[in-house]
Amino acid sequence: QQVILKVHHFLPSTSSAQLKLIQPWCDKVAKESGDRLKCQIYPAMQLGGTPAQLFEQARDGVADIVWTVPTYAAGRFTKSEVFELPWMAATAKSGSQALWTYVDRHAADEFKGVKRIFMHVHDGALFHFSGKQPKTLEDLKGLKVRAATRANSRMLAALGAAPVQMPLPAVPESLSKGVVDGATVPWEGTPSIKLAEIAKYHLDVPAGAPRISNTIFLFGMNQAKYDSLPADLKRVIDANSGLAASAWAGETGFDAVVETYKKAAKDAGGVFYNLPEAEYQRWVKATDSVDDDWVKDASAKGADGKKLLAEARSLVQQYAK
């Protein structure tokens, strides 16, 4: 008896999310179940709805499995959103493991109805500018910069830039037409939009420091679908879930590709600049209000925001070792 898993996500079938995470995971469970678990992948929202509705679709059983950015549904995953605050993780592997453990301990209620298979962050955003090369907080003032998430948007505002929220595919055209001066995008996202050809100036944190911002991702399954599986198939899913799977997603999906994409940017004539330590500390200081805003949001939902933030940071530290 073969079980078909409808996997729904919002990127094209050629995206690295599908090629490096979703498809390999599907192949692995197919192999380990003797082809009794079979994925049918529906990319680019083919099954209807918007990316923000993907989590709800997994909860409702419209799709069996989704890969999504839960925080697209703003205000719903406040506790998990802590990993989208500035200066959290230096690598995707450490951030993904910390995210998994943190959600397991403190935010599992936000994902009720969905079995979390793995969760991950990306390799951390950095700035890419086309015409200007800002190096200090003062240079950044008034520049229009693309923001990826709500927390990212707040952070850019705190740094004095003018955040413009737009989806990733809109970035190249907006950059080349001067709608924005720069964009925050992780290395992993640069090849799909040929960003290195348009934006030559890459501004990053000091080597090894926590990156400017991040986004959380969920690969999760409809709980009822999981519960309906026979015990041996459940074991196959379980064996490919959890902390180890999250570490794998962060590492193979993101950390492993950074050097290649960096080199491609260098070959395209890219100019790299890492903030000196002193300037970096000024940027960190400038964004304190973003942390405070999140603590307020979390406390409004009845959580101890201060404690959760400290816990998230210490988990990242712990897995970074």
Binding site: E56, A74, G75
Partner: peptide
Amino acid sequence: LSTLEFGETSAILG
């Protein structure tokens, strides 16, 4: 109703 129940808001204005 389910969106209201889970408190989903717009990104910027909330």
